[in-house]
């Protein structure tokens, strides 16, 4: 199912425990590195990097492929795609093959074939969103930076945790 609403994205993040990030970069000025390091230090999910050209990112071992990751950790709850749109379909086929529950296409990763494949295979699908921004929307991180989280609530939001 394609998740289009804020509530659906929030529920996905809340129920997910493992995330494999395809295209995570060890280069510290790359957007994928920012996202990787943010999610890792936020301590919500177990985060893994999938990058055949990297040995590790900040000491976290990088797997050469989703299959290699799955052989050790099993199917991830979310596969996060930080690849060119033209490679999205191939990544999606791998994600389906290892039994990932959801696939998340980062900003600008938009490929109709990939989306249709994932949807047909029963995965939850998020398109053209940043998983760091959506995580920060719900944990108060956006608000710290004066950014519009869109949240209106009379309930207390737990202070951001930093255990990890």
């Amino acid at each position: 199912m394609i998740l289009e609403t804020v509530a659906q994205r929030r529920a996905l993040l809340a129920r997910s425990h493992t995330l494999a990030m395809v295209g995570a970069s060890p280069t510290t000025t790359r957007p994928s590195y920012f996202v990787f390091s943010y999610l890792r230090t936020k301590g919500r999910m177990h985060i893994a990097a999938i990058n055949p050209n990297a040995h590790d990112i900040d000491g976290v071992v990088a797997f050469p492929s989703l299959a290699a990751y799955a052989a050790v950790h099993g199917a991830p709850d979310i596969v996060d795609v930080f690849r060119r749109s033209s490679e999205a379909a191939a990544v999606t086929r791998e994600a389906i093959a290892i039994g990932a529950k959801a696939i998340w296409y980062q900003y600008g990763v938009i490929d109709d074939v990939a989306i249709a494949l994932a949807d047909a295979a029963g995965l939850d699908v998020v398109v053209d969103r940043c998983i760091k921004v959506e995580t920060a929307r719900f944990d108060g991180g956006l608000s710290v930076g004066g950014l519009n989280s869109g949240l209106i609530t009379s309930k207390r939001i737990a202070p951001p945790s930093r255990s990890n």
Partner: peptide, 18 residues
Amino acid sequence: ALRTYGNIYSRIGNPTVA
């Protein structure tokens, strides 16, 4: 390094100002 959101110094950001 701007890799996480948080407060450092109120010239750059502050919870009430945010």
